[in-house]
């Protein structure tokens, strides 16, 4: 049976939900869970203050009701499932390494930062810096899969190292900035300078965008890896699969740095 947290009302301060993940709640009683502190100010707020709790197995957790003040939802998730009916704040899925996190609403900035495994799905829009490293981190996403059904903000996938990010809507400025490797797919096109200072990695955009002059045209191709990725992605994103099955024009870059990355548009 699912463990359910129902939000009582809009919180009066930002809350850190990182303790509410399966591996930290496993074996705890409803009373013990209700006593967990979530506050980010000097005003103490426990789980019981903020949520009504319906006890259940901690392997599957559902949140009823969201807020832009709910930060770090699903942080450190290793296995199991978390879903929320509503919005989340900063850094949802922070350092997730497995399991599934589903946000049936909008996510704030830095969603999926440090993701190294598992699956993060955002049904609404994602904020700026999707999957990007937090201050002091060297890398953004290093594995797993992020899917955004809506649009994403600026600097989507910044410092991506490994793993796959799919944005079914549009991305803001500088998507895939400074990426080290990995795959970023944006169906709805992008703002300024996609792939700015990318070293390696693959960015696939649904429509052409203004590129930095440091990208060079490598011609249109039907590449086998794109059809393999199309087939692997089809269960999760039909749009991404359809885009990857098109003939794609390859641009190599960013030659301002290492230059072993690539940017694809439909040819």
């Amino acid at each position: 049976m699912t463990l359910v947290f129902t939000l009582k009302q809009e919180p009066d301060q930002r809350l850190d939900l990182s303790p509410l993940v399966p591996h930290l709640l496993d074996g705890k009683s409803a009373a013990e869970i209700a006593a967990i502190e979530l506050q980010t100010t000097r005003e103490k707020r426990t789980v019981g203050d903020v949520f009504n709790i319906k006890a259940g197995e901690a392997g599957t957790i559902r949140f009823e009701g969201g807020s832009g003040r709910l930060d770090n939802l699903g942080a450190g998730l290793k296995s199991g499932e978390i879903s929320i009916e509503g919005a989340v704040g900063h850094a949802a899925g922070h350092d997730m390494s497995g399991g599934r996190l589903t946000i049936n609403g909008d996510a704030g900035p830095f969603a999926g930062t440090g993701l190294s495994g598992g699956r993060l799905e955002i049904k609404g829009n994602a904020g700026d810096f999707l999957g990007a490293p937090l201050d002091g981190d060297m890398e953004g996403v290093t594995g797993g899969l992020i899917i955004v059904r809506g649009s994403a903000g600026d600097r989507t996938g910044d410092r991506l190292r490994r793993g796959t990010i799919v944005v079914e809507g549009a991305a803001g400025d500088y998507p895939g900035s400074r990426i080290i490797a990995g795959t970023l797919i944006v169906l709805g096109g992008a703002g300024r300078l996609p792939g700015y200072l990318m070293r390696r990695g693959t960015i696939v955009l649904g429509s052409a965008a203004g590129l930095s002059p440091t990208f060079v045209d490598c011609g249109a191709h039907n590449l086998v890896f794109a059809s393999v990725f199309a087939r692997l992605l089809r269960p999760d994103s039909k749009g991404a699969a359809d885009l990857l099955e098109k003939r794609l024009r390859r641009f190599g870059g960013d030659t301002a740095v290492l230059g072993k990355g690539e940017l694809f548009f439909p040819a």
Partner: peptide, 24 residues
């Protein structure tokens, strides 16, 4: 040095540029 590593979840592929395109 032009080979490209591609991972998708637990699958790992190498793309090697060759004269007719790429060897996956």
């Amino acid at each position: 040095g032009w080979q490209i590593s591609k991972k998708f979840l637990d699958r790992h592929f190498w793309r090697i540029p060759v004269m007719d395109g790429e060897f996956l």
